[in-house]
Simulated assay, not measured.
Amino acid sequence: MVQVGAFKLADLSGVSKRDIQIPTRDGESIRAALYHPESGPEGPLLVYFHGGGFVLGFAEMYEAGFEVLTKELGFTVVSVDYRMAPEHTFPTAAHDSIDTIHWLGADLSKGFLVSGDSSGANLAAVVAHEAVDSGLSPPITGVFLRIPLLVHPDAVPEQYRPYYNSWEEYKDGLILDQKASRWFNDQYKSDPTSGLFSPLIWPSGHNNHPPTYFQLCGMDPLRDDGLIYEYVLREEYGVPTKMDVYAGMPHGGTDFYQMLPVHGKSMKDMKAGIEWILKQRP
């Protein structure tokens, strides 16, 4: 890491970075940033989808994490600049993300993970489900979800509503609140009942879902998206899961408050969580 005041920037020395273009189903193409170690054997691949409510953001937003992935774990990372609202509404971002994993021509035998934060974690969850349904081969090794959006508040199944409390409890939360969430949804013109927006209610269920690692923030209106989803995967479908929750942190606090020890802890936890996923491989 490179320290600039209170902020830590990624040190990409020893990491090769270049842009690639990924074709989409409608004849367009989208940019992605590709990172890999400049030396050493080719390692696993991780495809990352950035956050920003389907409206904001760019591929380089989580470079601090990409530094750990490439330098310490030998990963190649593809960070996707999917198309965003309001110019591109639902389900364009989901389709771009699905098209990305079907386009990849890399050797995936060493491991293939999908990941993202917030709305990007939503896309990672959607991709994981579509990959199972479509019989993607080789299959996705694992999923890493950071502060994920996993169900529209109007589409939470009745049996889980007693446990869906953070949406109201932190409706005025720092960084992300209910008003902003609804504005993002209005821009994206999401369909609450579609699995392409609410993967918790994916139509075919969660059988054969890859092992999944979660990072959640304790004072996040989306916290219970992650807690309910993790419970459903683990208890109802037998999916291996691992979870870290950062008490007292608002949505994205582990990234925004880089001056706090929790930022470094989240990076160490990420490394351990990714290593845990790789150990789940048969």
Results as ranks from 00 to 15, higher is better:
Ala128Cys: 03
Ala106Phe: 15
Gly120Thr: 03
Ile98Met: 11
Ser119Cys: 15
Ser115Tyr: 01
Phe144Leu: 14
Ala85Cys: 07
Thr89Ile: 13
Asp26Met: 03
Lys71Asn: 06
Gly142Asn: 07
Thr92Ala: 12
His152Tyr: 11
Thr24Pro: 02
Val77Trp: 00
Thr92Asn: 06
Thr24Ala: 06
Gly51Leu: 08
Thr100Leu: 00
Glu72Arg: 14
His36Ile: 02
Asn122Ala: 10
Gly105Met: 05
Phe75Ile: 04
Arg18Thr: 14
Pro138Leu: 10
Ala106Cys: 09
Gly43Leu: 03
Val143Thr: 15
Leu145Met: 08
Val126Tyr: 06
Gly57Lys: 09
Arg25Glu: 10
His50Leu: 00
Ser97Phe: 06
Tyr82Asp: 04
His152Thr: 10
Leu149Met: 12
Asp117Phe: 04
Asp19Gln: 08
Leu12Ile: 00
Thr24Glu: 02
Gly40Leu: 08
Gly120Trp: 08
Pro23Ala: 05
Glu87Gly: 04
Ala121Trp: 01
Val127Glu: 05
Val126Ser: 10
His95Trp: 09
Thr76Ser: 14
Ser134His: 09
Ser119Ala: 15
Gly65Ser: 09
Ser13Val: 10
Gly65Glu: 13
Gly65Trp: 11
Thr24Ile: 02
Gly43Phe: 07
His36Cys: 07
Val78Ser: 08
Ser115Pro: 00
Met84Arg: 15
Ser109Asp: 12
Leu69Asn: 07
Glu130Ser: 13
Ala128Met: 04
Pro148Ala: 00
Ile30Asp: 05
His95Thr: 03
Glu63Trp: 03
Phe58Trp: 07
Pro139Glu: 14
Pro139Thr: 14
His95Arg: 11
Gly116Trp: 10
Thr76Gly: 02
Ile101Asn: 01
Gly120Asn: 11
Val15Leu: 03
Glu130Thr: 13
Thr89Gly: 07
Leu108Ser: 00
Leu149Phe: 12
Leu34Ala: 10
Leu46Ile: 11
Ser13Asp: 14
Ser16Arg: 12
Val143Met: 07
Ser137Thr: 15
Thr92Gly: 02
His88Pro: 06
Asp99Ser: 05
Leu145Trp: 07
Ala125Cys: 11
Val127Ile: 12
Tyr48Met: 12
Gly116Lys: 09
Asp19Leu: 15
Leu69Gly: 05
Pro37Gln: 05
Asp81Arg: 10
Ala131Gly: 09
Phe54Ala: 11
Gly27Gln: 12
Phe75Tyr: 13
Ser79Tyr: 00
Pro148His: 00
Glu60Tyr: 03
Val47Met: 02
Glu130Lys: 14
Val80Tyr: 00
Ala32Glu: 07
Val127Trp: 03
Asp107Cys: 01
Pro41Phe: 05
Leu45His: 01
Asn122Ile: 09
His152Val: 10
Leu149Asp: 12
His102Arg: 12
Phe90Ile: 10
Tyr62Gly: 00
Phe75Trp: 06
Ser118Phe: 08
Ile98Leu: 11
Phe90Cys: 11
His88Asn: 14
Pro138Ser: 12
Val78Pro: 01
Glu87Trp: 04
Asp133Tyr: 10
Leu69Ser: 04
Ser16Asp: 14
Asp19Ile: 12
Ala128Arg: 07
Gly51Ser: 13
Ser137Asn: 15
Ile30Val: 11
Gly135His: 00
Ala94Tyr: 13
Lys17Ser: 07
Gly65Phe: 09
Pro37Ala: 04
Ala32Asp: 06
Glu60Gln: 06
Gly14Ile: 04
Thr24His: 02
Phe144Tyr: 14
Glu72Ser: 07
Thr70Cys: 15
Ser97Leu: 08
Asp96Cys: 03
Ala59Met: 11
Phe144Ala: 15
